[in-house]
């Protein structure tokens, strides 16, 4: 069970209040029609899946309802820090 620090609520809350929303920093191709198949494949499916520090989107669904980026160590499940912005690449 993770204790996740929500940067909006400024509180660490149990994992069950949150939803994991995947790797952070995946940006939809700016000009969808111009993007190649490879770019689409990368955006839709390819993931870094790091063993170590990862940056991921979470949403505080049963709290403030807002998105944020969590830095977490996937070897130990330790949450490092979280920040509010989600759109820019990490």
């Amino acid at each position: 069970m993770l204790l996740i620090p929500c940067p909006h609520c400024r509180q660490s809350r149990p994992e069950r209040e949150f939803r994991h929303c995947g790797e952070a920093g995946l940006l939809r191709p700016v000009d969808p029609a111009a993007a190649s198949d490879r770019e689409w494949t990368d955006y839709l499916f390819a993931r870094t899946n790091p063993k170590g520090e990862s940056q991921e989107r979470w949403r505080h669904v049963h709290g403030c309802g807002r998105f944020f980026v969590l830095r977490r160590d996937t070897r130990e499940d330790a949450c490092v820090t979280s920040r509010a912005g989600v759109e820019e690449a990490p």
Binding site: M1, H20, S54
Partner: peptide, 13 residues
């Protein structure tokens, strides 16, 4: 479990 991890543990709930 609901989030990626290599910790080979998982959550109790």
């Amino acid at each position: 479990d609901v989030y990626p991890s290599y910790a080979q543990r998982g959550s109790f709930h």
